[in-house]
Nucleic acid binder design. Structure first.
Lengths: 127, 127
DNA sequence: GGTTGACCTGGAGTGCACTCCAGCTCCTAC
DNA sequence: GTAGGAGCTGGAGTGCACTCCAGGTCAACC
């Protein structure tokens, strides 16, 4: 199965411009072209894009995704280093989750505080 | 207790420049000044800064923090709306945590995959 | 054969959140 | 009284990750 850039955009959730941008900066290999010079994406390409968007939503910087892409290009010999990159990133995602969880607690506390104020206010009126 | 801008920066974890920037864009009220025209921060100011940095680490956009700051300035009558802002933000933080958790699963999967490759590779050598 | 619509390129522009800078004023300590 | 350090202002610059644009090509349909 192959896909036009519009289809690849739809399936990856990236914009057409972003797809071309990723190609420009070396995040994705230049896809094949049809007779008219148009980009043709394969299922493999889409798989890679799915991985990229996944990493992007976790806040992996483009710099890091590029490093990973380069390693991938160099084949199986770089598997160890790629794993290293993922391990590092996993650690930072875990940290980020912990940070967010801590902030959730602060939010809960603040919200409860506002609920108490509301309560007091209502009592003040009815009293 | 009062603090110079350098002390406020240290205690809040923000840079001196960021403190002045936040003031410029209306995120914090202009603090008092000493006889020489220098900013003097109070414990209250620091409390507000702590809250802001907390919200910032959760990805609350400055636009939203500004809205909240404005409501706060208008006093207790806006408590309901402020609570609303926090509720909304809490929902988005929860969503974000779920997103990250899902991505952690993908990372775990990928890492396991690399471990299997390594394993195979080692066996290939020793065999 | 002309119009339409998708796609192409190189390059400029955008929004966010800072960060840095030049040139100045104070206060303090020698 | 002067050297140094902290702080001041308005404004320019930065890095990131896109996003938009002008001007052009190409295939297909009427």
């Amino acid at each position: 199965m192959t896909y036009s850039i519009a289809q690849a955009a739809e399936r990856s959730g990236l914009s057409i411009d972003t797809l071309r941008y990723y190609e420009r900066i070396g995040l994705v290999d230049p896809p094949a072209r049809d007779s008219g010079g148009r980009r043709v994406y394969t299922d493999d390409d889409l798989g890679w894009l799915a991985f990229l968007t996944r990493m992007r939503t976790t806040g992996m910087p483009i710099r890091m995704m590029r490093e990973y892409a380069q390693l991938r290009r160099r084949g199986p010999a770089t598997a160890g280093r790629r794993k290293q990159v993922l391990l590092e990133h996993r650690a930072s995602v875990r940290e980020r989750i912990a940070e967010l969880q801590a902030s959730l607690d602060v939010l809960d506390y603040k919200i409860t505080h506002y609920e108490q104020i509301e309560h007091t206010y209502v009592e003040g009126i009815t009293a």
